[in-house]
Design a protein around this nucleic acid. Sequence first.
DNA 1: CATGAATGAGGGTTCATTCAT
DNA 2: AATGAATGAACCCTCATTCAT
Lengths: 190, 190, 190, 190
Amino acid sequence: MKNKSESKVNLIYQATIELLNEGGLSEISISKIAKRANISSSIIYFYFESKEDMLIKLYFMLKDQMHQLMFQGITESTPVKVGFENILRNYSSYISNHKDSFLLMEQFIGSPFIRKNCKDQNGGVFKPMYPLFKRGIKEGFFKDLETNLLVTYSCIPFVEMGKEYLNGAYEFSSINIEKMIQMSWDAIKA
Amino acid sequence: MKNKSESKVNLIYQATIELLNEGGLSEISISKIAKRANISSSIIYFYFESKEDMLIKLYFMLKDQMHQLMFQGITESTPVKVGFENILRNYSSYISNHKDSFLLMEQFIGSPFIRKNCKDQNGGVFKPMYPLFKRGIKEGFFKDLETNLLVTYSCIPFVEMGKEYLNGAYEFSSINIEKMIQMSWDAIKA
Amino acid sequence: MKNKSESKVNLIYQATIELLNEGGLSEISISKIAKRANISSSIIYFYFESKEDMLIKLYFMLKDQMHQLMFQGITESTPVKVGFENILRNYSSYISNHKDSFLLMEQFIGSPFIRKNCKDQNGGVFKPMYPLFKRGIKEGFFKDLETNLLVTYSCIPFVEMGKEYLNGAYEFSSINIEKMIQMSWDAIKA
Amino acid sequence: MKNKSESKVNLIYQATIELLNEGGLSEISISKIAKRANISSSIIYFYFESKEDMLIKLYFMLKDQMHQLMFQGITESTPVKVGFENILRNYSSYISNHKDSFLLMEQFIGSPFIRKNCKDQNGGVFKPMYPLFKRGIKEGFFKDLETNLLVTYSCIPFVEMGKEYLNGAYEFSSINIEKMIQMSWDAIKA
DNA sequence: CATGAATGAGGGTTCATTCAT
DNA sequence: AATGAATGAACCCTCATTCAT
């Protein structure tokens, strides 16, 4: 039962992700999603309250998925430098292995739609990194600056270069990733 | 005549910018724009071929505006470090003084709409900086890496912190800006 | 078994009566009824052939109920004046004690839906009173006029004042009811 | 200009009246109205804010129309008896000459739709008669009873017999109308 | 008996666009 | 240069109904 329900929901999610990456929030429609997923458009309202409800639930699902991959193997006792490096490596893998999700997250984050409907989450997808960076400041690794500034210099270049990578304008090879980790470290190190 | 024409076009642009920042590409419509600008929706088709045409022209207008402000006072002979710093200062001013335009540019850039319709422009709004960075590499100031990587580490944090600033989560004071210029420099310096 | 069946049907009827009095025929739907009755909408199709079938059966049920209460204690040999007065008293009690049913009957009677689907019953809910009035004419109590005219002047003011009563614009006290019986009598007496 | 607008609105009204008398509030739809009126359904939203808005405006238009006909030639100084008789005669003419409007008014009045959306008007379509009846009481013509009771016994039988007339179960001849005026008078006279 | 899942048709409404004026 | 009136397509969503379980 649950499997059947879940699989139908995933069918809807998958079609939505594809269409959003093709045409964006402004071009998506329930009927297009239904057509792409080979289902009746009415059934979507059996699983979700509205189009908005579905998009928001999809956003949170993708965010959770991303966080799980990003913080794999990281605990509160992981040494700062190891944590810093591994999170960025994990994030790079996430970009390479979940191109669709990554792209869609970027679209979501930039859209007034998510800004308006998920206000509680403002401050960004990287918020779970803040504790590590606060530890890094306390332990003297990082400059004593605003946490969001440090997180920005560390992570946002990966986001941007992820887009370049998907445009074919950069390679996400191990070497390049290690180079970037070094640059991020240089930008924020004490 | 020209003035009158221009002012009507600007009326349309202004209403469009407001509405896009309020509800995004997915919620905008010609009739809403007309209502906001206090004009008939038909007249928009006198000045533009279609809704898409209007949005694309608005995008290019905003991009030009941004570039003019960003590269104010910079020539091919401006020393690399001076150019580097002044561009970032100019960009920071742009963010502070043209919040609506800045926000909208970010929305445009993240949207498949612009990605699809302005392909020629891919590579980003910061492309005009590439020559300066190539000079910087040749003159030994910067790491000998891909130009887009250097530009990313220099500029993208300003974009992100600009959003934080507009959210009230960061101050765009001179001190903070100089701090960021330093961090950008640290990230990419040879 | 029968009890269980009946109770489920009554559950459906009750929810339908409530919803019809709240929003009318134009706003009711099978799914709303099911939600209000806390049942699955499919089960309604086990007890009824269609939505229309259910509404019509509900209408006839309410009409029977009303007639039973109205003609309580009245037989063919009840003297005309006693019958006349008691029927109007009974009808007044019905209005006071079955407000929902009364209101819904009024809505049903005014609607093309019932007019179309229950043609056999046109001529109105007060048809069972006709024999009494015909006796009344023969025995010289009433004006020698069309029966429907006499019935109208006797009963319809009770309907209208029933609505006023439900609006809080009239009291259905014994005194008021006796006053009305007198007025009805005055209107039609020979 | 105005003529054109008005004629389109009247086209919409006419189609709506027809369809409401055929199928009632529960079966009407904007697309059916548009089809009946031979117009595009979208244009209805140029003249009205919504379906509800249109129906309510239609209701008020019909009510005004009815009042104008009903009180033709009646002023504050018209003698009570003359006023009483002429209003009922006028109302009978209205029923005969505006069958569609009359039937629709009855449907509107009985529907929760109008009850909910035009609360201010509760108490009924016959409210403008109240002053005349108050004068009638003061001048000793009528029983000293609640005004709504007197109005009910005077007018509501005409409503009901109007429906019988439209069903072919009664004739609205002059003779019959004078008979009814007499019965109404008998019911309420002091 | 009763449910959950599914569908196609149709609901009201807004859309981008056009055209006569 | 500007408007008001018009349209057909598409929008999101709910409908009555069915069927496997």
